[in-house]
Design a protein around this nucleic acid. Sequence first.
DNA 1: ATAAATTTTTTTAATATTAAACAGGAGCGA
DNA 2: TCGCTCCTGTTTAATATTAAAAAAATTTAT
Lengths: 143, 143
Amino acid sequence: MNFQFSENERLNGKFIIALWRAYQFAHKKSMSLFRENRITMAQFMALEVLYNKGELSVQEIVSKVLSSSGNMTVVIKNLERDGLVIRRLNPGDGRSSLISLSSKGKLLMDKIFPLHIANLCDAFKVLSDGEKEKMINLLKKLK
Amino acid sequence: MNFQFSENERLNGKFIIALWRAYQFAHKKSMSLFRENRITMAQFMALEVLYNKGELSVQEIVSKVLSSSGNMTVVIKNLERDGLVIRRLNPGDGRSSLISLSSKGKLLMDKIFPLHIANLCDAFKVLSDGEKEKMINLLKKLK
DNA sequence: ATAAATTTTTTTAATATTAAACAGGAGCGA
DNA sequence: TCGCTCCTGTTTAATATTAAAAAAATTTAT
């Protein structure tokens, strides 16, 4: 005898799957974009934060992309190796260094960031602004 | 000069982040549950399909959890090593094998699956059934 | 029936991800 | 100042994930 679902449990199961599939769907086009430009999604997320916020410490990047510091160490190491970001010592704190986009990284983001945004808009075009706003407010209740 | 967002682009950005955070939030409690029971989330997802659908081929598992076959090969190899699943040759197709829960795997799922469902219900308890149904229907429009 | 195409799965290489431990700097109170 | 704690970042080990190539079985087309 396996576990038997109640109606409520069944609905919650459907809901978590719907969230997952919607998130996957929204990124499908951009995954190809990233692949063509030889970066991974994790690398893009770090580049995106630096592009929009400027020079940041590792810890600040981590808090923006909901990752872990151990993970971000690796991602930034690979971005540094590929010449997309630059690291300099933090003059105000001997423990940390500050990461920023190189000119090569800036050029890459100038090219692909608008395309990524266009992909997102395209993915969500079947929803109205009101529908999106309503869902954002409901989803924010989960905390 | 960095990229400037339009209102629509800003809303889509907020929406994708809201989806991501909601999905993460819904799994937070169960991540601890999985850790305590020495399995990973990827392993749980494979076990869950086998628990609810019975014996399946690798390809069938892959299609249920939206993974890749190369990835699932590894996940199942680790589950096999830990004695949680059993593999037997598929009598009807020489290319594939059939995977099923071992008694150890079944016992584990009897214990943690109801707890996982309870965690999901708890995470989503601030939303009404109507709100969840409405969102499921809207999210299904993304295809 | 044979050749071609497809399916299923594994393998390899590279990157990502987590947990856990660790090192060293910074901040703070006694 | 000393000692304690917190913060920041790296490292290690294990697992996951992807892309790409490959092997083998099956199916399809001719």
